[in-house]
Write a protein that binds this DNA or RNA. Structure first.
Lengths: 196, 196
DNA sequence: TACGTTTCTTAACCTACATTAAGTATAAAG
DNA sequence: CTTTATACTTAATGTAGGTTAAGAAACGTA
C-alpha cells in the first residue's frame, strides 16, 4: 500500500478522499516500469492513459517535419503526463513519451478516469485543477518564448526546474527552451565568464 | 431570456442542464458592455470573472519589460476568456483584456463559479473540458512557435481563425503569431506574389 | 468632409540564433 | 575496463526576422 502514498498525497493536495475512495482509485491504477530510452507512447498511437510518475523521469516531445525534436514537458517524480490532445480526442497523437532514466509510473486509463469522474465526482475537480495549473504554465511558457531572449529563458528554466537542470542532458534543456544545443553551450560559457 | 441562449448552447455542447439549473446559472451572470479600446481587466488587477463573449471581440495580451505587447488570445463571439493565472490564484495578474470593437459579455464571478461547482457538479465537468481544450491549443501553439517559420504560422492562423483574419488589424495578428507588423507585411506581400 | 490618429507598407541595415563541421569529453553497455 | 555511442564545446559562416525610419493608406471622431 505504500507504493501508492505518493499519488494519494498528490491528489489529496487538492481534494479529500475517503478510505474507500482511495481503495477504489488504487484498484484502477496499473503500475508500469520502463527503462531509459524506452517509450510509454509514440506518435501515431492513441493515448489511452494518464501517467503519474512515482520514480525516475519522463519527457514528452514531438518530432517536426524536419526531424527536429521539441520537448513539450518533463515529468519527474510526482508529475502527471499524457498526450492531452490524443487522450481527449482518442485520435492518433503526435507526442512521444520516453523515459530519460529507469522510471515507474501508475497508469490511469481513460476509461478508468471516466468511471472515476462518475463514481467519485471529486476527481472531476482534481483533474480540472491540475489542468488549469498546466494551462497557466503553458501560457507563461508561450509568453516567455515570445518576449524573452534565450538567455533569460534558460535562467528561468534553471530556477523553475531547479533540481532537474543537473539531471537532464543539456540537449534536452535546449530543446525545451527552444534553442540548439550549440547555442545553449555558448550561453552557458558566457554566463559563466561574464557574471562572477 | 433570449440573450442567454448563446451561452446556454455553448455549455450544452458539453453537459446537460435542467431548466432549473439553467435559471440558476442565469441568475449568477452579470452582463457587461464595453466599447472599442476599453478594458475589462488590466495588468496588476486581480481577475474576478470568467467572461463569455456574446457579441464583439476581445483580446487578452501582456506587455513585456520592453513595452511590447503580446497577444495571448482572441475571444470573438461564443468564446470564454479570463486571466487564468490571476483567476485561480486571486493574485494580481499580468493580462489586459481589451475590446477590439463594441463588445458584450456575460461575466461569471469566481465566487459564483465556485458556488456553481458545488450546486451543479456538471459545471465542474464543463470547465474541466473547456480548460482541457484550451490546454491542447496552447500546447499546439507553443510547438508551432518552436518548429514552424513565421510564414507557416501565419497561414495556420488564417486557416484556424478564418473569419477573424479579416476583422483583426494585421498588427494584432502579427503579435499573436510572434512577429513584428513590418515582417508580417513583408510576408503577405511575398505570399501574394510568389504563389498564384 | 476634414482632421488627427492609428495602421500599413517599403526598404536599408542589424542581430540573435541556426547551421555546419570537427574535435573533445562523458557515459552506457558489454 | 574497454569500447562505442552519445553528449558537449568551439568556431566560422549563414539567415530569419528585428529595428529604424519615413511615407501612404485607412479609420475614428467631430
Amino acid at each position: 500500500m505504500d507504493r501508492y502514498s505518493l499519488i494519494l498525497e498528490n491528489i489529496k493536495k487538492h481534494i479529500n478522499l475517503t478510505e474507500e475512495e482511495e481503495r477504489y482509485l488504487i484498484s484502477l491504477l496499473k503500475p508500469i516500469s520502463i527503462k531509459r530510452k524506452e517509450w510509454l507512447l509514440e506518435a501515431g498511437e492513441i493515448c489511452k492513459y494518464s501517467y503519474f510518475v512515482t520514480s525516475g523521469c519522463l519527457r514528452g516531445y514531438t518530432i517536426d517535419t524536419n526531424g527536429f525534436e521539441h520537448v513539450l514537458s518533463f515529468a519527474p517524480k510526482n508529475w502527471w503526463i499524457a498526450d492531452m490532445y490524443s487522450l481527449i480526442s482518442q485520435k492518433p497523437g503526435t507526442v512521444y513519451i520516453q523515459a530519460l532514466e529507469s522510471t515507474e509510473v501508475q497508469a490511469l486509463s481513460k476509461t478508468a478516469q471516466e468511471r472515476l469522474y462518475i463514481e467519485v465526482p471529486a476527481f472531476e475537480r482534481f483533474f480540472r485543477i491540475i489542468t488549469e495549473n498546466s494551462l497557466v504554465s503553458f501560457q507563461q511558457r508561450l509568453l516567455d518564448n515570445l518576449s524573452l531572449p534565450a538567455e533569460e529563458r534558460y535562467q528561468n528554466f534553471c530556477k523553475r526546474y531547479h533540481g532537474l537542470t543537473d539531471i537532464l542532458p543539456a540537449k534536452q534543456v535546449a530543446s525545451y527552451i527552444g534553442v540548439t544545443p550549440e547555442f545553449l553551450s555558448k550561453m552557458k560559457h558566457k554566463l559563466l565568464y561574464t557574471n562572477r
